[in-house]
Write a protein that binds this DNA or RNA. Structure first.
Lengths: 142, 142
DNA sequence: CTGTGTGCAAAACGTTTGCATGCCT
DNA sequence: AGGCATGCAAACGTTTTGCACACAG
């Protein structure tokens, strides 16, 4: 089974679990997000998907993305007021935005650092999720 | 010297250091941000400032806010795609957004947790700043 | 006086909506 | 066959812009 087929079957399961239909637009958008994992914006995704599905609309891209976020398949990240970006990395991680290259890099968060993050939250607060981003200059080798 | 005078003198020093002029609009916007410290949006600020300066424009509020952010007097926070919010707390802290009340609470970050955050960043990366936010349910007493 | 900051209106930008049509199940 | 998903265009909310005027230094 190819990686893409594996990915599609993940998608099918997740959609079915939510009572959602499998469409070629959803499959294509999902594969595009998994392909480069470069934190594309909705517009980036629209342009890439249109190469394969020239008739797809912007609204459909947004619909698909919202569906995936609701299913927990994709994370929406808002580093600033510009476009939201979409990330298929579901394990605990932070984002580092390089001021020089503009690239966004995933930084894994180990359990020790995760505990430390939890310690910031006062007792009695129920903690559902977090967003952590850094900005600076990444290593030139990256 | 009143707290407001102290605050204004901070602003005057910071503006002067950047070669910027002191205007009644800037003083008023700055005081509004310091007053309630409830992470107001630009629109919130506009409405509050207009009570004191009825002729102020939206563009001026945005200009002031951008100036303050550039001076490092105020932090701009983007928790989601809705309006940016402005925060005068300059010490290291995270934000907790309560899903029930919608309130945003500052959570101080001690030096231990700060070190832990730094440990997430790979060697060779120069780290300029971070943004950390949590969402969940805050303690009902808050 | 000089020119930066302001007020106004319109534009820009990313995203969402309403509605008719298409297609998955 | 039924109804959810799509495509289109227009609307939306937030923020930025261009320009003439005001006022701080």
């Amino acid at each position: 089974m190819s990686i893409e087929q594996k990915q599609n079957s993940d998608l099918l399961v997740s959609l079915k679990a939510k009572g959602l239909r499998s469409t070629k637009q959803r499959l294509c958008v999902y594969n595009i997000i998994l392909e480069k994992r470069d934190h594309p914006t909705a517009d980036d995704i629209f342009l890439r998907v249109r190469k394969k599905l020239p008739k797809i609309s912007f609204a459909t891209v947004y619909n698909c993305l919202e569906t995936f976020v609701d299913c927990g398949l994709v994370k929406k990240i808002n580093l600033d007021r510009s476009s939201s970006r979409y990330c298929p990395n579901l394990s605990p991680h932070a984002h580092f935005k390089c001021a020089t290259t503009g690239k966004i890099i995933d930084l894994p968060i180990n359990s020790e650092a995760l505990n430390s993050l939890n310690s910031i939250i006062p007792d009695g607060f129920s903690h559902v999720g977090f967003d952590l981003s850094f900005h600076g200059i990444s290593n030139p080798n990256n």
